[in-house]
Amino acid sequence: MATHHKAFHKGSQPHTHDTHDTAVHTVKSGTREIKVVRRVLDVNDQMAEKNRRLFADHGIFVLNVMSSPGSGKTTTLEKTLAQIMPEIGCAVIVGDICTTNDADRLAVSGAPVVQVNTDEFGGDCHLAAHVIEKALGGIDLHGIQLLIVENVGNLVCPAEFDIGEDARVVILSVTEGEDKPLKYPLMFRECDIAILNKTDLLPYLDFDMGEAVNNIRQIHPDMPIIEMSSKTQEGMAPWLEWLKQQVQKKHKRR
């Protein structure tokens, strides 16, 4: 049935309603155009603005962390939290399609962690603003200066959805190849800072760091790029410095 319907619509012939079981018969010229002009993601954008106002009221800096699966988001955050807490009050929202593995790992830091499993929302490939709003219900925002949102591992869709964050970081691990920025330009264009992670593995790979950096520069010329290994913590200082500065700036603006 569905196949038939699809074949019918995909045909190059103009679409008539003779074969549809509808009460209204129309001819092609008998249509009237009604202007709509609305963004399809309007609802998400409005919710993101609402989140943004709430974060501004509390002086909380919100970081949206994005990458492909397995590039080291959770390890990077574990090590980051261990370095900046308790100096900075942190909370984390973790998005995954299934499991609470990442939340369990991050909860060790002592920060409040809310796990969002998107299978409730149809196995979503990204976190949307309303999901963040719902997750905020489980966090006491008093005393929090930094909210980290670990998005669903995916280099495509999360870039499209504003969640009310202040900044976006993309993590690319050196095992993924130098060409990923060119293949996923929206993600690298949308983010404010890039981490090239797992540099401890460079001796075992053919990865060309210069080419990777050039590729990122082609997409986003002035984006800060941090080369580091979250496993060994080598090269992590500039990342922590950047993050602390951002948190302070937001806190002062309150």
């Binding site: 209204v24 129309t26 001819v27 010229s29 008998g30 249509t31 009237r32 155009e33 009604i34 202007k35 709509v36 002009v37 609305r38 963004r39 399809v40 993601l41 499209e160 264009r189 520069r217 986003h220 010329p221 002035d222």
Partner: peptide, 24 residues
């Protein structure tokens, strides 16, 4: 590298076209 993206991020509903019996 100082550029503004002026189009290409759209995801907009521009209009709908409805059957207009008068027009028939």
């Amino acid at each position: 590298g100082q550029i503004d993206i002026i189009s290409g991020r759209e995801l907009n509903i521009e209009s709908i076209e409805i059957a207009d019996e008068e027009a028939d």
